[in-house]
Amino acid sequence: MTSHPTAGADSPKPAFELKAATFTLPVIRLLGIDMDAVADQLGVKVDQAPDFFRNTPVVIDLSGLPPGAGQIEFPLLVGLMRGFGMIPVGIRGGTEEQHAAAEAMELAILGDAFVRRTPPREAASQPDPRPAPRPAASPASAVAEEGVHASQRLVTRPVRSGQRVYAPGGDLSVVAPVSHGAELMADGNIHVYGPLRGRAMAGMKGDISARIFCQDLQAELLSVAGHYRISENIPDEVKGVPVQIFLDGDVLRVEKL
């Protein structure tokens, strides 16, 4: 009945445009994993220029770490930086394992192409500066891949009463029911695509930004970074529906999705 609409008349105005832009961000280049030392030094820097760091996005650079430095305590580091007013947005360099840990903290992994590589200052005297960010590409690749899998766990069979599943250093996804008396634990988030009737504990190592997502909440206990709620204290209106559970200050919130 109506004629074909002309292109301009009916189509709404575009809500956004997709563009690329380049920003210069401050980079904190870690030279060790001792977070106390980092805290001390950061404190001094921030005292010198408090305005400079307020609400400033910051990238954490791991390429200056000595090889085999071990796991970085991202929850601590991120908390520390936020405490000084900075907004940690991502990391660059580092190992696959560190990437996984950073992802668990919702930090972006910034590609090598994003920033220029510079050899660490201490290493500048070395005759052949090796490509810093991804050490030992070929021989370690198998190990690195395993690291990715180890830090995020996928469970496809029902988690039965009395069983415990732990995802160290990352997220746990369960694509099956979780029974009464079963226990899910993760250092990062927990996702359950099925009824959650047992216990779920996210942010086991104190990550207060960890969340629990589930399709059908019937849990006995929910906890994020040690703040917990038992079934009795979960309101009826959020039971049996898809929800997310997260920390808001000191309060563990259960919200419908």
Binding site: P158, V159, R160, S161, G162, S179, H180
Partner: peptide, 9 residues
């Protein structure tokens, strides 16, 4: 509940 535990084992 016991059967669930048994299935887990």
């Amino acid at each position: 509940r016991d059967s669930d535990r048994m299935l887990g084992i």
